[in-house]
């Protein structure tokens, strides 16, 4: 399919399409879906747009002007979807096979790293792949620079300029997105998905994303409320839809992942880091990986089952767990 930036250009060349597209965007400004759907003009606009290339356009991860592309995508699909559903269609193109080859290269890089890392048994200390990943990062200029920048951004504000805020969460999230955008996956993924045999390693893994700033908060918001916040932001909404599409546990594959694509799941997981639904390891357990965004289901009223389903997609996600475990070996 065409990318949504290109599709909106094509649409803009056609006077009917471009005027409907403009109406559609106006319809969505109010954000009140039901009133929008009731509006005849909005309805008509939507009908016309369904025959335009915008209807099934997609975006690429990390493309130029990714955000504008996603905005174009949602300006059609927010009208099509009913809003409160559990899963939405991802605006991103499905992962290509070539990506999976890259995964293979990351795994083999990890293998050789851990082969070197095995030397740590000679020193009598337990082997710590997360520490090995940090070493590799520190000795790579880009990775070291980006990591240092990230840690500085997500550290408590310099005491001199101390406001009451312990750190700037928004900036930290931006820093995390930048880190994973700019650092080669050969270096960044091993930091996050290292396979641990002890607590020290697992704690290091948990701390990779600076959870004190990017993850934990004084109170836990309700997951459905968090999801709603996420869906009001085109980037977060896209990443969440992508995560659901690529990491959804499915009974139809051996690995429990859609199309047996571990890499797709990990990429979409990383895509969520730095968003409102930033997920992380909930503890430093090395035997039992539990991942969750920072939210709970208290106060869900009659939507509790839905809230728990949302949380289960993180906490009890066999596909995601398998993908992480497979990464380290």
């Amino acid at each position: 399919p065409m990318d949504c930036l290109r599709a909106s250009e094509v649409c803009n060349q056609n006077s009917q399409c471009s005027s409907r597209f403009r109406i559609m965007r106006q319809c969505l400004v109010g954000r009140d879906r039901t009133t929008m759907l009731a509006n005849r003009e909005c309805q008509a606009a939507l009908e016309v747009l369904q025959d335009s290339p915008l209807y099934d356009c997609r975006c690429k991860r990390g493309m130029k002007r990714e955000l504008q592309c996603l905005q174009s995508y949602w300006s059609i699909h927010m009208g099509l979807n009913e809003g409160e559903e559990l899963y939405e269609t991802s605006p991103y193109e499905p992962m290509h096979l070539s990506d999976e080859f890259r995964l293979a290269s990351i795994i083999s890089a990890m293998d050789s790293a851990s082969a070197k890392g095995n030397l740590c048994f000679d020193t009598g200390k337990p082997c710590n792949p997360c520490l090995d990943a940090t070493k590799a990062c520190n000795l790579n200029d880009t990775c070291k620079k980006q990591r240092t920048a990230l840690l500085a951004t997500c550290s408590p504000a310099a005491p001199i300029s101390q406001a009451h805020e312990p750190c700037n969460r928004k900036r930290c999230h931006r820093g995390l997105r930048q880190f994973f955008d700019r650092v080669q996956t050969e270096f960044s993924y091993p930091l996050l998905f290292c396979s641990c045999r002890d607590k020290a390693c697992a704690e290091r893994r948990r701390q990779t994303i600076m959870p004190a700033c990017s993850y934990e908060e004084k109170s836990k918001p309700n997951c459905l409320e968090l999801r709603r916040t996420c869906r009001s932001d085109p980037l977060c909404r896209s990443r969440l839809a992508d995560f659901h599409m690529n990491c959804q546990t499915t009974p139809h594959s051996i690995t429990s992942c859609p199309n047996d694509n571990y890499h797709g799941c990990l990429v979409s997981y990383v895509g969520l880091i730095g968003s409102d639904v930033t997920p992380n390891y909930v503890d430093a357990s090395h035997t039992n990986i539990t991942i969750s965004p920072w939210c709970g289901c208290r106060g869900s009223g009659n939507h509790e089952a839905e809230c728990e389903a949302f949380l289960r997609d993180f906490r009890e996600n066999t596909c995601l767990r398998n993908a992480i475990q497979a990464f380290g070996y």
Partner: peptide, 15 residues
């Protein structure tokens, strides 16, 4: 060189 940040052995980030 610019500041260096790291995780110490008691899992505190230091500069």
């Amino acid at each position: 060189e610019e500041d260096f940040l790291f995780l110490d052995n008691s899992f505190q980030y230091k500069t």
